[in-house]
Write a protein that binds this DNA or RNA. Structure first.
Lengths: 332, 332
DNA sequence: CTGTTAGCGCCTTCAT
DNA sequence: ATGAAGGCGCTAACAG
């Protein structure tokens, strides 16, 4: 089932068939409709590979995410998928499991697949080999969630967001506030949020608690419990993401503390499920689907112009603080 | 950067370069290594579209899932992605938002993209236009989560699983047990699970409560609360999926009931986050990533043989019941 | 408005 | 073990 079959059946040349699919207005209405009818009858669709080979454009976007197990990225991918479809693009997603050598491997693979551009979340833009590679081959890309002055990024202001969380907790009377994060050193997001924590604590005139770092997510509950069992424990835990916040709530429970009566907990990401938990999660809400959609928009626009998206086109989307049941006034 | 450039630089014909990539053993070790070295230096990779055009095989698998917001499908996609990569395939995922006309549209689009096969989750295999289309064009496919005797499926025994949940609750002394589900009529999974509920109740000699059907997920909490506020309320709620169970727990909370002391709640799916909630979710655990992996395996195998996966190759994977904190003995 | 034609980059049979 | 050549299906000049 190819263009020639359709052309013969319609008694026209293959060029005319091609035109009806690519520039319908350049074909007389009569023949156009005839060809469309025949194509429909035969179930003909232009062959994507042949098109790509000829035009050098695949209309496919590569996507590199750390994982799909964390709903924040699944939600983002949903946004990417929708926006891509709306723009006539398909997507090819891969997960890097937060490993930068995987990020690079996937990017190379994606390039070999002939994608027109890539949307990625990297561990750290400043040291990413994947981004170096993209530059060296001049393949358009947009970073999601990361933020870096030299790269086009769609993100939220993590530092400010976290400072405002500290302020919120301080206003509730909390003084002993600790931050919980994954591998801070491995992620620019965690770094920025931690900086915001320090800023916020300083502004509030509070002494920052030692950072509770949880390198292995499996042991998160245990480690957080440990930190809660000292006699002079924090009264509030600011977690660098929602998944950690959920585990912090569990850790509190296992340590015999009630949330929020004995301990306030906040997250970061705004995953949808957080609204349905008991207690509902207090968290910094990022527009996850929109981050995906905007990334697509920026990338598609650049591709249409035959250029690389520029760092100056980066967008910082607004975040909000969702004031859930997991935080409350400090006990007197 | 094409095969000719490499061939010239190596002083061989393009055929030899092609062979080194496709049948390395058919090239003398010396020239093979020379060519590989040159290819590496030049950053050459065979052009995927040209390959596809020539061989008529894209090494891409289409994926159709209802949504990525429900972690059960995100986890499955993660499994699909891994297994596909391991087999040298890429994937192209789309979401149908549980709408069967979308399922069909996506499948047609996927076919036009030239995918070698499709993994899909449909609302109801018995009435799916998408499956009809796949048959009519003889495009290999595997159903995930669905189960139907005439289609190749990777799933778990939902009916049995649910019957055993009833048995478990009955053994805990529950007598007033109700089931909560989404749009039962729209999904074969919900139908099967409901059948299991009825079977289980009958075996236990209990009167099944009227089904609590929640057509719009947004209103789930409200509707479930309503069902809990009658004076002769159920003491246990069996939810047809984990997301509903989470909302049921919230509904209980809002109705002033404690889980599990006043109300037991169970889910279905085994999403990973359920283990970290407080209370931990009692649920039927499906091997979500494995469902994805097995789907890929079955599909890739059929593609390799140039055939359609056969319905007789369907696999029913084992499920387990995770006995979490959300259910307990019935109050005396 | 329509037709003819030259590749896009690669794989693969057939020779050598 | 290697080379020559045809063609996969399509788009985009160019010509009419």
């Amino acid at each position: 089932m190819n263009i020639l079959t359709v052309a013969k059946k319609a008694g026209v040349s293959i060029a005319t068939v091609s035109r009806t699919f690519n520039f319908p207005e350049k074909v007389s209405p009569a023949t156009r409709e005839l060809i469309q009818q025949i194509a429909r009858d035969l179930g003909y669709h232009p062959n994507a590979s042949a098109r790509t080979l000829r035009t050098q454009r695949s209309r496919v976007l590569g996507v590199v995410l750390p994982t799909l197990i964390n709903p924040v990225f699944a939600e983002c991918l949903q946004g990417i998928a929708q926006a891509a479809a709306l723009n006539g693009y398909s997507i090819m997603p891969f997960t890097s499991n937060y490993q930068d050598d995987e990020e690079e491997r996937i990017v190379q693979n994606l390039q070999a697949c002939g994608v027109d551009g890539i949307i990625l979340v990297v561990s750290d833009p400043a040291s990413s080999k994947a981004l170096d590679h993209l530059h060296s081959v001049q393949l358009p890309y947009v970073l999601a969630y990361n933020s870096h002055t030299e790269h086009p990024c769609i993100s939220v202001a993590g530092t400010q967001a976290l400072a405002s969380v500290v302020q919120h907790l301080a206003a509730l009377g909390h003084q002993r506030i600790a931050m919980v994060c994954g591998q801070r050193s491995a992620s620019d997001r965690a770094q920025q949020r931690y900086a915001g924590f320090l800023n916020g604590m300083e502004s509030a005139g509070l002494q920052p608690w030692p950072l509770i770092e949880v390198p292995f997510i499996k042991a998160a509950v245990e480690q957080i419990s440990g930190a809660l069992e000292s006699d002079n424990r924090p009264t509030a835990l600011i977690c660098s993401n929602d998944l950690l916040a959920i585990r912090a709530i569990r850790a509190a429970h296992l340590s015999g503390l009630r949330v929020p009566e004995d301990l306030s907990v906040t997250g970061f990401d705004g995953i949808q499920i957080g609204e349905d938990l008991t207690p509902t999660l207090s968290t910094v809400v990022q527009p996850n689907q929109e981050i995906g959609q905007r990334s697509v928009a920026l990338l598609v626009d650049a591709i249409a112009h035959g250029t690389m998206p520029d760092a100056s086109a980066s967008i910082t989307l607004p975040h909000t603080f969702r004031d859930g049941e997991s935080c409350a006034h400090a006990a007197p």
